[in-house]
């Protein structure tokens, strides 16, 4: 499971970095979103991967999942969700005001 999770995080981040370096705003926004997915999974995995373990410890219970990364990842998801909404609106506004969707507003490569 560790290998699968690390592969997914790596793939998400790599695709995110690639897309964030593109010249149009839409791929850039997608790239930022993918990167935030990658980092959310990463934060979650930092509490160690334990299948079938409850996050609340009780007397006589052997293993428990670390609840803190889950709280952290929740915060990170909310923030990245808000930021994605903002950057989508901003790129729409840039498209409207600059007349094209290139990040430099020059319209190169059209």
């Amino acid at each position: 499971m560790e290998a699968l999770i690390s592969f997914s995080i790596g793939l998400l981040t790599a695709c995110g970095v690639y897309l964030a370096l593109r010249g149009r705003t839409y791929p850039v926004v997608l790239g930022l979103t993918l990167m935030s997915y990658g980092v959310n999974l990463f934060l979650f995995a930092m509490g160690r991967l334990l299948p079938g373990a409850a996050p609340i410890w009780r007397e006589g219970q052997g293993s428990y999942a670390d609840p803190l990364p889950q709280a952290l990842v929740l915060t990170a998801i909310v923030i990245s969700f808000g930021m994605t909404a903002f950057v989508v609106m901003l790129s729409l506004r840039a498209r409207a005001e600059l007349g094209n969707d290139h990040v430099d507003g020059t319209g190169e490569g059209q």
Partner: peptide
């Protein structure tokens, strides 16, 4: 708006690295 877009994108990448 263009300057703002650059600023927002680079700071979002920064936030990801921070996390």
């Amino acid at each position: 708006t263009r300057a703002g877009l650059h600023y927002v994108v680079i700071n979002l990448v920064g936030s990801t690295l921070f996390l």
